[in-house]
Computed example of a mutant assay.
Amino acid sequence: MRRRKADGNLGLACGICVSFLVLMLFGVGCAGRVVEVDNAQRSTTVITETTGSEDAETTAGGEPVGVGQQETADEEPFVLNTEQPVPPDFLTAYRRGTRIVVEFYGRSADGFYPQGLGPDESGSSTLEGLRGEYPAVEFFSYNINDPGDVGAAANGEATLEPGQYGTLTAQLNVGYTPFVATMAPSGDGYLILNRFQGYTPPPVLSQALYDLDRIEVEDNASDVVLELNSVRLTDTGGGIEYFTVSNPSESRVDLQGFSLREIGAEGEITSDSPGVSVDEAIEVPTDGVSSIGRVPDALTDEGETVDGTFTGGDRLELVAGDQVALLDSGGAVVATLSVS
């Protein structure tokens, strides 16, 4: 009998240990996706968790703030280290002094993250739905699994490809995804106004963008809502073969009078910068895409004929990775992108 009792106690102890381990792993997983980075990108962000008590933080609408979410209480000074590899599009917006929203999210499943991709997909979907409401804000989204070859880029042996974030996670102290930061220019740098890590309710993100948009900044951002999706170079000469724009807004946009201009090394953009101009009426429908080419029979990567043509481009000597900006008919910046 004693032996059987000992076996029972041993089984009970093993069962408790296994249950405790499972609960620990589940708790960590629900807090958010852990960002695995090398020594150059490690962060020490502290994650706070809410509870179901009466003291739990809620949004203005009474919804509980998500488990694992951290939000900064005070504005944080931020100065980008441009000596380290950072995304060219982010660097351009930073130098222009525009309002910025930057997001890091996961796209692949992780065994250490039993909650799955729900929080990342929810955060990305929320921000994508809000982009059209804030044309003066620059949005940047990066897949946390694609930093690029940071070592080679730091040594000048390679450049970051579009969508690769380099050392930006380290500089922003990203610890968990989904991660969202809202940033506004201040002096020689920026202020991080909000920092969200882990699941964040849509009303909280919406309020953060609303607050960011109300901040007065001296930039030349356009009120037109368009996204610059692709810019393809000619096979030789550094000219533009075609570019493609999409319209996430609820209004049709006529591209006549718009231009695509080269961005200078320090982020300067003017209507006199080298580029091309759209002189004919080309309408981008709501939730639609339009492509503008060098010649009427230019084909996109999908094998479709362009919707119209641009003029100019004789002074262009672009290479892959250079930055260009789409300007509206008044010369204000609509969107920016790296050419390829």
Rank of each mutant, 00 (worst) to 15 (best):
G15M: 12
M24G: 01
A31R: 04
T44L: 14
T44C: 01
I47H: 09
T50L: 12
S53V: 12
S53K: 07
A60Q: 05
G66Y: 04
G66S: 09
Q70E: 12
E71S: 08
E75W: 12
E83D: 14
Y94E: 05
R95Y: 06
R95E: 14
R95I: 02
R95G: 03
R95L: 15
R96Q: 15
G97T: 00
G97E: 12
I100K: 00
V101A: 13
R107G: 14
D110V: 05
R131F: 02
R131G: 02
G132M: 01
Y134N: 04
A136G: 02
S141G: 03
S141C: 11
G148L: 11
A154Y: 09
N155M: 06
P162E: 13
P162T: 09
L168W: 10
A170H: 11
N173Y: 10
G175A: 09
Y176K: 15
A181Q: 12
P185K: 05
G189D: 10
Y190Q: 05
I192G: 05
L193V: 01
Y199K: 10
L212F: 08
E216N: 14
A221D: 11
N229R: 15
S230N: 11
L233C: 02
G237F: 04
G237E: 01
Y242F: 15
T244H: 00
D254W: 11
F258M: 07
E268Y: 13
S277E: 12
E280A: 07
V284P: 08
D287I: 00
G288Y: 07
S291D: 09
T300H: 09
D301Q: 14
D301R: 12
E304I: 06
E304W: 03
D307P: 01
G308L: 13
T309R: 07
T311W: 00
G313E: 10
G313L: 06
D322N: 15
A325T: 04
G331K: 05
V333N: 08
V334M: 00
T336N: 10
L337G: 01
S340T: 10
